[in-house]
Design a protein around this nucleic acid. Structure first.
Lengths: 209, 209
DNA sequence: TTTTTGATTGAATGTTCATTCAGTATATTA
DNA sequence: TAATATACTGAATGAACATTCAATCAAAAA
């Protein structure tokens, strides 16, 4: 097998990815403290000691996972912001996509659990706290902006846009957690229930004339 | 100080309550594994060893807290069920009360966090798992029934009542978690945003004629 | 071939706890 | 007062675990 600098670098990064992948599931289901290095090593199929060939500590793995999760979330929000769609269609699309992802992507669910564990626990590494502090607000802010735009167009209900954003994300998050804790095939609710909550009712359809 | 059987029993129960109270906050903010017996003892202001005079183990305290939390939640749901109000008013009232409680009762928030930690972690005592298994579904079932009743009366929107119940509870839960993780004075959203989501729109108000 | 470099293993080390325990204090009862 | 029972303390014990380390292994380069 080749062994030049780049190849080496690449293989090393692949191995690190395997570790992160195994660690994600462990941290997501058990939390940082209940997860033992042995659990991670077993999940990846390597010896305990080898984990330390790739990561300095358990905390370092954890922090990297938190960082990735927050970044992915923020990137998704930015790309939503930059779509050329009317605001209420952005909200509709976002809810549909998020619910579908919750329903189909195990990785996404695990990531939500990880973030949930992390944001609701004070017993996490300082660096993870800092990252959360820095990055958790962007999704709320961006959705609030979209809500405000929709209000100007008369398509989103009148209410404090920040509050709408909070309801938006906490509902999504609550659903992700719910789904994660029901191993079986519990169906995720129809997206229209949530979408409805934010849409101004302008028309015939919802009126008994 | 008196020292007959009953007095003793009562004082012992008070002391246990103090321990539970201190432990609740610790478990809620850090989870089971990150919470050390020393933390609990310090929170109550007693020596480590004394905790074991009242509880056999850390797990036993944890299980008792989980049990209390689930019972309180279920009792509240039963009392909602038994109120003589039209279904949509029950939903309205429940949302208003829950949001107000989230906003004002620190104990309630801590309890929500405890349950959230517990339901989303596999690293909890077997007995706690069993309790959650047994008791977590009642609130969903009862709210689903109320939703169905409301649909018959035409006051609750048409959608699978079970899905409505899931959205109901996951939204509430998401908000509680949100509130718990923002130390500052973050306001809880206006209850009407959530209430709206479930109510059939029958009238003039929401129509542009 | 030999040398070098990185991957890998599992045992050794030291620390952090949960839990136990020996002993002290305090209050009630006899 | 002495005997007894409970509350209480903080040190001792032992297990679990994160991290380190000495020793192999395998591939590539020389």
């Amino acid at each position: 097998m080749a062994r030049n600098k780049e190849q080496n670098e690449k293989m090393r990064e692949e191995r690190k990815q395997q570790i992160r992948s195994g660690a994600l599931r462990q941290f997501a289901t058990k939390g940082l403290f209940a997860t033992k290095i042995k659990d991670i090593a077993d999940a990846v199929g390597m010896a305990q000691g080898l984990v330390y060939h790739y990561y300095k500590s358990k905390d370092e793995i954890y922090v990297e996972l938190i960082k990735n999760a927050l970044n992915k979330m923020n990137e998704a929000v930015i790309s939503l912001k930059e779509m050329s769609l009317p605001p209420h269609e952005k909200i509709r699309l976002a809810i549909e996509q998020l619910l579908k992802t919750i329903d189909t992507s195990d990785d996404f669910i695990q990531t939500c659990r990880l973030i949930a564990h992390a944001t609701s626990s004070t017993a996490i590494p300082e660096e993870a706290k800092k990252l959360i502090q820095e990055k958790r607000d962007l999704p709320y802010q961006e959705v609030a902006k979209i809500m405000a735009q929709g209000q100007e167009e008369g398509t989103i209900i009148e209410a404090d846009p920040n509050e709408l954003a909070i309801v938006f994300w906490t509902s999504i998050n609550g659903l992700a957690i719910y789904k994660a804790t029901r191993q079986d095939s519990t169906a995720i609710p129809d997206a229209r229930i949530l979408i409805n909550m934010f849409m101004e009712r302008t028309g015939e359809k919802s009126c008994r004339v």
